[in-house]
Design a binder for these strands. Structure first.
Lengths: 292, 292
DNA sequence: ATCACCTATACTTTAATTATATAGAGAATA
DNA sequence: TATTCTCTATATAATTAAAGTATAGGTGAT
């Protein structure tokens, strides 16, 4: 039994005659007769009662028609689903997001979702080392990261935006409430909660060096390993932190804000990173090539 | 997309390589490569990641395989169902049963059901004229009847058994409780409930003629048009009736029994009747050809 | 009885599929 | 590094399946 035989058969049923079906199918009449005969032979069943007034279904033919119609359209739907996966409009993309890139990741994801609502997005927030390991293992397809990680050699990166690194504080811990920019000497006695990320980025070192140049070492009351914790500490009044400025957007209306430190102009790039070696599904291709 | 392409594709997936699949399919390797390529071309999708270590599925290929396996076995199941209808082991047979043939119909139906449990039996009990009309209209496929109806010309009949026509009575209405066979004179003053079936069978007439020969006419207190009603009347003590003897089996343990009338040897045949002209489904063929 | 219409078969032509032979790519081994 | 092995892809020939053409046979209508 072939799909073509089923299609011919259904056409004959719907038109009520082989001749009419052959016209609809744009083929001659004998091939239709022949395929029907082959089908009957294979099934060992008469599908039609032949009469001069056309072809009437037998019981077996009735059953074949009812099931066959669905069967044919099932194939078309099946093909359509596979096609959709091929063009990437359907599928799954597995993403890792570094907390500090959330302000860049979210608009990107929103725009992508609007463009390709059929693509499922799996999103994991974590530390850069873990995310990179999962990317290389193939568990993740792309990462929202900060530029400059050692392990990102061999990865493709696309810059999504840049942040000035600024001092993050609350009104209570602001070392210079009366000024928009904080002179570096004001940091002398300010407790600091710095992000320690195995030196993924050097801007904490740069800040400390600047302080040293000014003749003091700030008191680092806490070194934490993830941005959300640093933010929590800042919000709770433990001290100030030194982070990409847009991070404050992840906790809006929470009394946290950012100010530049005079003479310190460190900068950080938020990037989308992925591995172009190895197999990449159509939806992943689509995701990394996407421009919001 | 053809079934063959799907089968080749699934074989490649299961064997992990085109070469191995071609061996399993008993064809050369190039045709398999080619059909896969055609499938990919039609779907506009890469289904495999080609590597020297074999063929690995892409996301689209994964989806096609999961759905394709089911799709292929669906076709096999579909064909099997149609085949079953063709051989008659599945399907529907619509039957008409004359009440007085119930003792013959029931064992037949029980045996057929045991042999072909997949065949649905639709059973209607009714008057012979109605049943014959429905048979000719095609609403019924076969009838359990009494032989000798005028309208059965052109029908095939098969005799299922014969009944002596006997007097049906209860202990209270028995005209000769002391005898096993009733002398015809005893019917002189006995009220009778006779079945009037538009003279479908002549045995009532035969009985009345015999009475007339004996010099009397029995009192026919009721002429009813269906056997169950006649039976009800007999059971209620309205009178006796004159029916095929095995009819008493349809109301066992009800106090009804049959006795011969001396000198009256009418006989009736229970038959299975059907029309061999026109379309007859495989299960109907099976039913009429069946021997318990 | 002839005509019109429909299906089935015989035969030819065309298209699709398969088989054979072979090239090219990547991993394994010496 | 060169060699060998294995696997896939392509070119071309052979085969097989499908479609087209012509026509016979059957049934109902004019």
């Amino acid at each position: 039994m072939t799909i073509r035989q089923l299609e011919y058969f259904c056409a004959v049923v719907e038109e009520g005659s082989v001749s009419a079906a052959s016209r609809r199918l744009h083929v001659a009449q004998p091939p239709v007769s022949r395929q029907i005969a082959l089908l009957e032979q294979e099934l060992g069943v008469s599908l039609f009662r032949r009469g001069s007034k056309g072809m009437l279904l037998t019981e077996a033919g009735e059953s074949l028609y009812q099931q066959g119609r669905d069967y044919i359209s099932d194939m078309e739907r099946l093909a359509e689903r596979v096609r959709a996966l091929g063009t990437g409009v359907r599928g799954t993309v597995r993403l890792g997001v570094l907390y500090s890139t959330v302000p860049y990741a979210l608009p990107y994801l929103r725009a992508f979702r609007a463009a390709y609502p059929q693509v499922e997005l799996y999103i994991r927030v974590g530390a850069p080392q873990d995310l990179l390991a999962d990317l290389n293992r193939g568990d993740l397809n792309a990462l929202f990261l900060r530029a400059g990680a050692k392990e990102t050699i061999g990865l493709h990166e696309r810059i999504l935006g840049s942040d000035a690194i600024k001092l993050i504080m609350t009104r209570d811990t602001d070392p210079a409430p009366e000024l928009d920019t904080i002179p570096i000497e004001r940091l002398r006695s300010v407790p600091m909660c710095l992000l320690r990320s195995d030196d993924l980025w050097g801007y904490n070192q740069a800040l400390l060096k600047d302080c040293q140049r000014s003749g003091f070492m700030p008191s680092v009351v806490c070194q934490c390993y993830d941005t959300p914790m640093a933010m929590q500490l800042v919000q709770s009044g433990f001290g100030v932190s030194f982070l990409p400025e847009r991070i404050v957007e992840t906790l809006p209306h929470s009394g946290i804000y950012a100010k530049s430190v005079q003479g310190v102009a460190e900068n950080s790039y938020a990037v989308l990173a992925w591995n172009e070696n190895g197999y990449r599904s159509a939806s992943v291709e689509l995701f990394t090539a996407f421009r919001p």
